[in-house]
Amino acid sequence: MKLLQVENLKTTFHIDAGQVQAVRGISFHVEKGESIGIVGESGSGKSVSMLSLLKLLPDNATLTADNILFDGAQMVNTSQKAMRKMLGRDIGMIFQDPMTSLNPLFTVGEQIIEPLRIHQKLSKEAARQRAIEILRMVEIPSPEKRLKQYPHEFSGGMRQRVMIAIALSCSPKLLIADEPTTALDVTIQAQILDLMRDLKDKLNVSIVMITHDLGVIANMCNRIIVMYGGTIVEQGTTREIFYKPRHPYTWGLLRSIPQFTEGEKKKLISIPGSPPDLLRPPAGCAFTSRCPYAMKVCEKQPPQSVALSETHQAACWLMHPKAANHMREVIG
């Protein structure tokens, strides 16, 4: 069952210097109960595409899409005001930085209780009971006492647990987590990932996780979307992306993490150059300037997404039948 289906989503920011085409026509879907990882470099459009779905864009942004179906309902033209009714109730969100996403002037309890009162219309006492229950669910010790404390009295890991508690308080169908563990230490990151995995199964919520850490994705997600320069260059199951990657950018991404086989240490293989300027996006494939296998056609025409299996798609000219010879030449 598809929970979310997005077709041809485009987001553009209008700034003095021109138009930044942050997201340039992406299509994907999220099944019920699955967890999807979105990877890509900073500026590849991962966060903006999610914020676009939630209509959390600033005033200078415009959004177009052929379809945004959430649980069967069309959301392309949903106003920000109508969206507010859904945020927190049907869709929960966890942000990267637990230090800035909680309000320092309110107690943690007040911040958990607010969505419960608004969305679920619970009485004060019922909401408080539910808040204690949720804090217990995210494994925060002595929740009764913790409810009355302010965010500064919590450590980074504990704050991220509180964020998860708030995001899940109204039992949403979809949880969007934007780099939820990037600001945390590894041992705390491991705790938070375990918690998210447990809760996903317990509450049957779908998770879209934005991250740049391939390790986190390998441990958390069953499908992966790889973004580059505002487009989706490849998507597939976690195993397809890790073991049968087809796009040169995915190859580069996978090779730039240190590998340790017995004995000799390998030199890291880096991707030369830097990402494209989305104020003036290239006419063809966005990766052309950094791609070691680039052909003439790559500069002129954006490649179409090619289906490699039911779940695996990649957008690269190398997969065109006519490129077979070129492929043999470069790979040897």
């Binding site: 590894v186 041992t187 990151q189 491991a190 705790q191 990932l193 375990d194 850490d213 391939l214 390790g215 986190v216 994705i217 390998a218 441990n219 976690t238 195993r239 890790f242 073991y243 996978l254 993490i257």
Partner: peptide, 19 residues
Amino acid sequence: SAVPIADPDTAEGSERIHL
């Protein structure tokens, strides 16, 4: 052991020490 391993097969079989 807390470092997430960027390899789905290894990640599945690996045992974590939980602090």
